[in-house]
Design a protein around this nucleic acid. Structure first.
Lengths: 165, 165
DNA sequence: CTTGGAATGTCAACAAGGCTGACGTATCTT
DNA sequence: AAGATACGTCAGCCTTGTTGACATTCCAAG
């Protein structure tokens, strides 16, 4: 089956084609982060804060450990970011009821407000790109991105919206 | 024309859909850089070195200024990276003939060898993802990425292979 | 031929945000 | 009672980005 269209694939997957894909990822990711970065630059926050806010907004009540797994950084690194967000009143940390070792993270109104403005900026670009490319292109986009993830990351990517049932 | 399928678009571009796209970009980019990062971690190099090597390999003889524009960093930052690469004998810097203020950058055999191994690792993942998703998905992938770039970055993205005539 | 400005290199200082290692405390599990 | 887990924190290091200042070299315009 793989050989059935190997000719097509050989033509298709030249190093040059792949290199262009690599460069497209590089340049696109720059655009992807540009708008939130601009907003964050006016404050004392960076991309790391944005990521934390995003996933806390996405899964209110998530634990520190869970967030660590998603972000793929060390707890020391995350803690530095989280501490400033809590101190600044953007994030709330609440001791778990079932397991009191856990801390459940939620956004305050202030945190939600910042997350919204970052998210809006990023979604606006995403929306424009999706509109420009069209629904079929978007489907392909998503497929390739998913195929590019490490298996563990793919699991997390799906898990993040599993509880949305 | 935009209104002709606005219903479809409204359904299509929910915040949730866009958020998933954002997360897909986040997780996929991690995969995208994972393999080269693993190789680089064994040496005294980082992602910045990889980027420099990539674009020098892509455009042998490119000038420092040109590279600055592509990478979007300050000359001080690039210079630090470039200096170590030159000292380590991976990159050669040659004074321009037409304009002797310019330095033209090329890879040495040693540099080409490292660039190859980084590139091979990254392309292997790309190839696997492309194969898994199929040609049509790849076309869509490329379209969306391109639409996501800043106009200036899009210009550079195209310019990088213009001279390939 | 002089001079302005462009291209490059370099020094210094700093910040964000990764990392490792070590340690402490509370809490759950066995 | 002992061990494992969740979390926080201190200390120190690295890469890679930033500004600002300054020197050099050289092209090009006047």
């Amino acid at each position: 089956m793989a050989e059935a269209h190997s000719g097509e694939n050989l033509l298709f997957l030249t190093d040059e084609q792949l290199r262009q894909g690599i460069e497209a990822m590089f340049f696109a990711y720059r655009g992807f982060t540009a708008d939130p970065d601009r907003i964050l630059a006016t404050m004392a926050y960076g991309r790391a804060h944005h990521r934390a806010l995003h996933f806390i907004a996405r899964r209110p009540g998530t634990t520190v450990n869970n967030l660590l797994g998603i972000l793929g950084v060390t707890k020391q690194s995350l803690n530095r970011v989280l501490r400033t967000l809590i101190e600044d009143g953007l994030v709330e940390s609440q001791q778990g009821k079932a397991d009191r070792r856990e801390r459940h993270l939620t956004l305050t109104d202030k945190g939600r407000s910042l997350e919204q403005s970052l998210s809006d900026a990023q979604r606006a670009r995403m929306r424009a790109a999706y509109r420009k490319a069209g629904p079929e292109a978007v489907a392909g986009f998503r497929q390739v991105l998913e195929a590019m993830m490490d298996p563990e990351m793919r699991r997390k990517y799906h898990a993040i919206r599993e509880a949305d049932t």
